[in-house]
Structure formats: C-alpha cells, structure tokens
Design a protein around this nucleic acid. Structure first.
Lengths: 334, 334
DNA sequence: CTGAAAGCGCTTACAG
DNA sequence: CTGAAAGCGCTTACAG
C-alpha cells in the first residue's frame, strides 16, 4: 500500500504539494500541468491516504459510533440503516457499539470513546439507567447525541411521538371504535409520556371517554405485552380495541389474544407503534403506525456531524415524512 | 484528553518508559516504585492511548470490518452478534459495512479497506456476484475471511450445512412423513449444494424416494418461497411435508399455504433452515433447524484475528454446538 | 536501569 | 508558485 511519498516521487514534486493538491487547498496555485501529473500518479497507484496518519494530524477521525442495546433488535433496524446511509453520504464511517458494554466495561469505554477512535457518539437509549450513565460519561468527552428520545442537556433527535400516537388512535376511532384501551410504553421516558399524551389527545378530540383501568403499562417486549394483554382480556367490560405504544408488546397482545380465544381483529383490534419488516408476515398481519425511523437515523447523523463541526447542541424533531398508519389485518371496524 | 506526555510529567519519567511500562515490555527493568508511580499517574488522568497514533506507529489498528448485504436482515442477526461478542473479547473493534457499497463505490472501498482503517475483513456473502468481486478486491489488500460459505482461496468459516439439513429432513421422517419436498437455496453456492445434499442423504438413508419434481428452487426471500410454494401446491400428487433450505422462504411457504387453504401443519408440515428471533411469533410458529450461527460469528472473528497475526489462510467448520431442530407448530405427524 | 531520538504517514504554517 | 520542516501522539531500537 503505497503512500504519499510514492505519489510525490512519481509526480516529481514534494509530498506537501501532493497533499494540498489532493485535498483541494484553495490557497494553492499550481500549474494545471503539475496538478494533472499529481492526480495521474495518485490514480496510477490507487493512492489512499492513511487513515491513522490523517486522523492523527487532523485530530479528526471521520468515524462516528452508534451505541445500541441490541444490534439484533428489529425495532432498531430502520434507524440503524438510516444512520448508515447518512454516514456513507457524509463520507463518515459508522461503528456499532453495545450500550451495556460501553457503560459497564471501562476498558471498552476507553478504547472506543476516549481513544479518539470516533469523533462523536450516537446513543439509542432503551430507557434504563445504563443509558443515562453512558450518555453522561460520553458527553463529557465528545459530542454526543441521543436518538429517539428527547434530552435537555444533550443533542437529541426524535420523532413526533405524540402525533404518531394520535394517528394510531385516530385509526381506531375512524373504524368506529369507542372502547379503546392503551398499553403504555414503560421506562418513564419522554417518548413514553408523549405517546400516552397522543392517545389521550386523540380520544379527547373525538369526545371519547378514556377508562382509567384500560390504560396500563405494556412494556417493550413480547412477554410484557402478553402479560399486559392477559390483564386487559380478563376485565369486564373488556375493550374492543387496543393501541399499543410498542410493536413488540403489540405482538405479545396478539399472542395472548389467540390463547384466550379472542379473535383479532373481530373481537379485538390491535395497532402497534413502529413498523417491522416482518409485521406483514404475522398472523394476522399487524397494523401499525410507522414513524419516519430511517429519516430519524439520517437526521441523527446530520445533527452529530454538525455538533462535531460547530460544537453547538441542538434538538431536532423529524416530522418528514409524516408518520403513517399501515393498515394490515389486525384492525377492523367496530 | 491528556496524552502520554502528561503521564510522564506526573510520574517524573520520560514518555518512552511510560509506554513500555504500560504496554508491559518484558525486556524492561524498572524499580517497582517507578512502575507504581507511572500506573498511578495514568490512573489519575484516566490516560487512554490515542488510537490513531498507536495505529500509525504499530501499523496495526485493532479493528476489523464485517461486510453484510443488509444489516437489518434478521438472518444475519445471530452471526453479527456472535462476531461482536468475540471482537469485544479480543479487544478489537467491529465495524459494519455494506457489501454493495464496498463493491460498487470505489471511494467507499478505498476509505474502508485501503486506508488502513481496519486490519482485516469479514465478508458474509449472500450469493451474488457482488460478493465475489468484493472478496477478490479485499483479499488483495488485507486478510479476508468469508463467513457462512466455503471458499478455496480465502479463509472461510462455515457451519456443517449438510448435517444440519440432514437433521431437518430427519425430523420430517421421524414424524412419519414420506411425501417430502425440498425447496432448495438459490445462488449456486456451496452451502446451497450442501443443504440439498443433506436432504438427499437423509432421504436415501431412510430408504425414501425423492420425487424429482418435488425438488425445486425456493430462493432466500419470502416472495421467492411463496412463489415456489405455489408451484408445489398446484401439483398432483402434492407433498405432505417440505424442507426449506432458507427460513425466509419457509415463511413464504406458510403464507402461500394459508392463501391456498392448505392447513399448516395438518395438511403440510414445514421446516425452515436457521432460527429467527420471531419464529415463535409466526402463526403457526415455525419449526426450524438451528445451526450454531452465533458460534460461527465468533469463530470467524477468531479465524480472521489469527490470519492477521500469522498470515495463514485456514478453513473452519463450526460443529459445536451441533445444529438442533427447534420444534414449533409448523410440523406435525403425517 | 533510564533517556534521547527516530520515525509511523500525513497536513500545514512558514519560508523562499 | 513550490520546498523544507515541524509536529500530531505514540512505540521501540539504540545509547548511555
């Protein structure tokens, strides 16, 4: 792997000139001919600047980290893929990291965050205290932005959770439902509150009463959703529709309903929050409200890049494209 | 972020000594007292060696790349998570990359592969020509190992596809099935052949005839599996069980069966290849043969690390733990 | 036992 | 218009 020295030798100039030509230094005046020779030489040997050397000199690496709780969680897929796309477009490399590992293993934290391996960190919190610890630790050392959750003191990129949940609820209302339950998101996060708020607003706007006992915590796992659904299905009277603030929990609801002999959607309509690439393949296919998660991932990268460049902490709410309801088979008219 | 200079200043020694003490240079003799002062100083300021400086000096980065076609493909989840775990254990950073991007965008390829950003590359081929191109390009520049597919000329880590498929087929045979079809994997890869071979071996060993028209290509997507199932279900006579060499295709089979009014499992037993975290949640829950994919990811990292260290190309087949059939609701006695 | 110095491959003021 | 040189933060032969 030949270096800049070799390019300089071939072009008959010094390495300084090569560097400035290849980096497009505007203050540099060279004859077009020299410039051409340099480009040709670089092309000939497929010259690629050494990453480490450049990073060391510039004290800027061209890489950002994305810390998630579980790479394999399908809910993160769209965000990760949006972030990856934006990173590529910005000529920045994206590195996946593990939140629990980073938070609990100080060697791992040092290696990834303190060593200058990355210029900034994107953090996708799940809602437990590990997240808070990590974001505090990281933000002391480098630009950090929280993704999918609001944050006062740190940069943050979110979707409009309230609007999305209002939309989901509206879908049930539009189908003629009035006996609607809510399975709230757990974790006490801002997004959990916003989703509950969206539900209540939609219900209030439609003049439909919210029965307090029909608003319970549904968690963010299949098991938690199942457990919550058990409670709901044992009630009398029982709701005829349920808005679930998390898609995993919504899957759990369908499973519990099946076991209870409750038909979805004829006995119970279910709508989840966030789309999944396999939502269509469930039985029944799961109706969801799909917020712009891919765009959220993209926006988060843009925000972090900006924060790395300018140092200013900003907050962004991604509203484009608007969330939309993807109607599948788990919801039906009342 | 303080550097080695600061540690040296605090400990009252030169940076050379600090470096050698902290890196555990065995040829170095220092008084325990000095050693202790150095460690204390490093601890005090939470000294972390600068990644770029160290990489530049050592010409060894401590990072490896993992190129996949689609980060969000749930089939890769277990492999990725195994690789991530092994990377952490080896104090190596894992970077996710996109196969098509790397193969088709020479700037991206240079930035990731030729710049010394990573020490080696893991490649998870999907079976198209992009993979071949990328593995050729990459292996010329750095240690490269192919994951989940055999390769003569490059390092490779695979599972025992034949044994796994034999197991899947055996499960159907054990249930008393004789009219068994096979949906082959597409792509003409070694693993595709091995899976087909496993099916044929199991059938031969059981003395059950394989009907040629019941062996067709099922692809590796839901849509392809559906299409293949349509063909199968239109046949007369029609198979009562089907072994599918890919799990996405198996999901497609279930969908197609449902639309045709063919009950799974009472009219048709279906077993897929590879587990999915949501296989349980499908309806019916999908029976699969689950090879040790997480261990495959781990082994791949180990192999690449070794290849980076010693330069020798090796091949490994991961057989521990053995593949196992996870019985769910999509298979039933004949 | 410890220090001084070269050098990894770049970028960028500073001279000419 | 172009060259020579310093320096980013480390590691490691080489001297003392």
């Amino acid at each position: 792997v030949a270096g800049i020295e070799e390019v300089a030798r071939r072009a008959g100039v010094t390495v300084g000139i090569v560097s400035r030509v290849l980096n497009g230094d505007p203050t540099l005046r060279v004859r077009p001919e020299t410039r051409e020779r340099i480009h040709a030489a670089a092309r000939d040997i497929s010259y690629t600047p050494n990453h480490a050397a450049r990073a060391l000199r510039r004290s800027r690496v061209g890489a950002i980290g994305l810390a998630v709780h579980d790479v394999t969680n399908p809910v993160y897929a769209a965000i990760i893929s949006g972030a990856q796309r934006a990173a590529s477009a910005n000529r920045v490399v994206l590195m996946l990291a593990d939140v629990p590992e980073l938070a609990d293993d100080s060697v791992a934290f040092s290696r990834v965050v303190r060593s200058g391996l990355i210029d900034g960190l994107l953090l996708l919190p799940a809602g437990d205290e590990t997240d808070d610890r990590l974001v505090e630790m990281a933000s002391e050392v480098m630009p950090t932005v929280v993704v999918n959750e609001s944050s006062e003191r740190h940069g943050s990129a979110t979707i409009d959770n309230e609007a999305a949940m209002r939309l989901a609820t509206q879908h049930l209302l539009d189908l003629g439902h009035r006996e609607i339950a809510l399975l709230e998101l757990d974790g006490g996060t801002v997004r959990a509150n916003d989703r509950t708020l969206g539900f209540r607003r939609a219900m209030a706007d439609a003049g439909v009463e919210v029965r307090p006992e029909w608003v319970i915590e549904g968690g963010h796992t299949v098991a938690a959703g199942e457990a919550a659904a058990e409670v709901l299905l044992a009630m009398d009277p029982r709701p005829r529709a349920v808005a679930v603030a998390n898609v995993m929990a919504a899957m759990g609801v369908i499973g519990a309903a099946r076991r209870h002999g409750v038909e979805v959607p004829s006995d119970l309509s279910v709508i989840g929050f966030n789309d999944l690439h396999f939502a269509e393949l469930l039985n029944p296919g799961l109706t969801v409200v799909a917020p712009p998660l891919r765009e959220l991932g993209e926006a988060a990268v843009a925000l972090l890049t900006k924060q790395i460049d300018c140092g200013e902490i900003e907050h962004v709410v991604v509203r484009e494209p608007a969330s939309k309801v993807i109607v599948r088979a788990s919801t039906a008219p009342a």
